Amino acid sequence: MAHPVLTPEEIARRTELACEAAFTAAGDLDLEVADTEVLHEAFSVVVRLSPTPVVARIPVVHPPGTTAEQVEERQCRELDVAGWLHEHGVPVTRPSPLVPPEPVRQDGFAITFWELVETAPDHRAYRAADPEVAAALHLALAAYPGELPFLAPFNGSLADMVEAAEGSPLLSAQDVDRLHAQWHALAPVLADEESFQARFGPTTVQPIQGDAPVHNVIRSPRGLVFADFEDVCRGPVEWDLAGLGAEAVAAYDEAVETLDLRRTDPRLVEAMDAARRVQAVASLCLVPQLPLLEQGLAPVVREWREQDVTLRI
């Protein structure tokens, strides 16, 4: 069953409530806050807490079936990895040192607090950086000692999203059948590291950013700063490159020649591209919560419809 699409007024109210929750939570943490300013909003509302150099991030768009505990587990992983990267000299948005590095529950929202990063004049949200930066990040992440789930964006909520997409008016019955077929072909192969290695052989798997790191950067006066590790997980590096195209993959491979990393595997590039397309199409189920997503996904869905339905994995 399709859910009603939120109106602009309803989205504005959601943002307002998220800001109020961040303001209250910050006060309870003894942060000095006189005003809030929305810096960005899409899947999360990102709020500057003036005059303190702190930014609150509040997830507001969730896949079907997501529990509060799952949201906070994801946030805890992100806080831990980002903090670890900062301690090891990687330019990254770090958890605010002014509060404990843990999510705070307030008025139904799960909130994390981050150190403010000043943006450079040429910063634009999601503007891609050169693929070489992904190689540098992967080299740093390879040493991360903590436990992480395998391909969390694929194995977490995607099964429920695929089912929910069945009710999307943006997909035809033929689209739905194709989505289900591709999901059922990929899911057993990517379910865990053992299944993955059984299919692809002894391929290096390591901690990865999980959500196109070249697009999740902040351009600051001190250079590029990595951000948004909500989907951090273990997996092949090809997942972080999925959908970027052959030219970007070639640039990544050239960069790793001087690093202690392997070159990409064409079989994995193809498999991860396919898995990412399934994720993107299934994300249409989130359009009622985030209407602007429809326009953003349109080119991906169009390309998916035009491609060979056979998955060679």
Rank of each mutant, 00 (worst) to 15 (best):
L98T: 04
E73G: 00
E10W: 08
F200S: 11
L290T: 02
I58N: 01
A22M: 00
A129M: 10
P149N: 03
D228R: 01
V117H: 04
P100V: 00
V5N: 04
F226A: 13
R222D: 15
V269D: 08
E303Q: 14
F226Q: 07
F43C: 06
A42M: 03
D130P: 15
I313E: 10
A25Y: 07
D228Y: 02
F226G: 04
V5P: 11
D130L: 05
E257H: 05
W183D: 15
R124F: 10
R305L: 10
E294D: 15
A185F: 06
L244I: 01
L29R: 04
T36C: 12
A187C: 13
L49E: 04
A298Q: 15
G235H: 03
A26W: 07
R178M: 10
E32P: 04
E32K: 07
Q289D: 14
L171H: 05
A173N: 11
L141C: 03
A2T: 12
Y252N: 09
L241M: 14
V278A: 02
Q106K: 12
D228C: 08
R277M: 12
E247T: 12
R263I: 04
L286W: 02
A191W: 04
L137V: 13
G245L: 10
F109L: 01
G167D: 11
P169E: 09
P64Q: 05
V287S: 08
D160A: 13
E230D: 13
W183N: 14
D265Y: 05
A25T: 06
E294Y: 02
H184C: 07
H215L: 10
A82H: 01
P202G: 04
L261S: 06
A248Q: 07
S283A: 14
S195T: 14
F43Y: 05
Q174A: 14
E37P: 01
Q307N: 06
R262Q: 06
S157M: 09
G108R: 04
L286P: 09
V92C: 11
R222I: 09
Y144G: 11
W114S: 03
V269L: 02
G156P: 07
Q70H: 03
L141V: 08
A164S: 13
A136K: 13
V60K: 01
